[in-house]
Simulated scan of single mutants.
Amino acid sequence: MAPSNLLRSTAKSAGRITPTFPVQTRYATAINSRRSIWDFLGGNKPQDQTPKEEKQVEADQEQQKSSTETQRLDTETSTTTTTTTQSSPNIIEQVQEVEEEILSTPSPNKTAEEQAFWPADLPLPSLRQYPYTLNRGTVTSVGLMDKTVRVSYQTREWDRKVRKYYPKTVTYLVHDPRNSLRQGDVIEFSSGAPRAPRVRHVVERIISPFGVAVEDRPAVLTREEREAEMVNKRMEKLVRKAGKVAAEEGVDVEKATRRVVESKEHIGRIRALVIERAAAEAQTNA
């Protein structure tokens, strides 16, 4: 830049005057005082909407209203309590009368399904017997499935190449009928009747409990109790089916029950062969 231009720029900057404004303008004071600009320009001063005396009168009126409402609610509650105390014995008497009428009235004719029963001369339904082995393991997971726990079983595996045993951990899903197992328990479980596609073992007893004592848990079912429960379930199922058959075909309930039980009775292959041979021998001897 030329020296002349530098001199001109410095002269202009020296002759420039910076205006001085007040710190707070009239408009800013109006905003800070929460007054509208139109009231400010018109010269109207802010006034309270209601004087102090009117405010006191309104407060007294509100207190009177609240007191009257509380008195009214107290009277209503007292009247309701008296009516309920008076009507409660009447309601109890009415309920008792209705129960007596229901018990005294003869029951309507039951359907064939409700009349179905297990004949006394019929033997109990047989269960298929599975060979089983007893193993010991530790419960590693509880609560993810209903009546099923995860158990780790420690065993050994023979390596034919090295010709040596190596430790191996196998995980089983074990059936727990009463949800009596806890994580960390050492139990004895057995293989047997399948409960699900992946559940083929059932707990037999708790060897060493972890955490909660055995007395504070539901009892573990024995093999006899489990078999009795399965027999009862099978009986109920066959009776329901016999009732449906009797209702559909219009046959006697007892006859339908006998027919269904005979058709659903499980007979093994060897037992069936023995029965056939015995029947054939009886016919030849006759």
Rank of each mutant, 00 (worst) to 15 (best):
S104I: 06
R178A: 03
S126G: 09
L127V: 05
R150D: 02
L173G: 03
A112E: 12
Y153T: 01
R163V: 07
L127N: 03
P167D: 08
D176H: 04
V95Q: 08
E114T: 06
E100R: 08
S107L: 11
D121T: 13
R163D: 05
K164E: 14
R128A: 06
V149A: 04
Y166R: 12
K168R: 08
V162D: 03
G184K: 00
L144G: 02
A116D: 02
N179I: 01
L181M: 07
E114P: 02
T133L: 13
Y132R: 15
E114M: 04
V162L: 10
E97K: 15
T171D: 00
V162G: 07
Y172G: 06
L122A: 09
M145T: 05
Y153D: 03
V142P: 05
V174G: 00
V151H: 00
P123A: 06
D176T: 09
E157N: 12
F117Y: 15
V186K: 00
S152K: 15
E100N: 06
A120H: 13
L103A: 11
R156D: 09
D146C: 05
K161N: 10
P177M: 02
Y153M: 02
R178N: 14
F189C: 04
P197E: 05
S180R: 06
N179C: 04
P106L: 12
A196H: 11
P197T: 11
A112V: 15
P119M: 06
F189Y: 05
P123L: 01
P119V: 04
S126N: 09
I187M: 03
S141C: 15
S107A: 12
Q129P: 13
P125F: 03
S180C: 15
V95R: 10
S190D: 03
V139Y: 01
L122V: 07
R136I: 02
Q183T: 08
V149N: 11
Y132E: 14
S191T: 11
E101G: 14
L181A: 03
D121H: 12
R136V: 06
P123K: 03
Y166W: 14
G137M: 01
Y166N: 09
V142D: 03
T171K: 03
D146L: 12
S126I: 07
L144Y: 07
V95H: 11
S107R: 13
P106E: 11
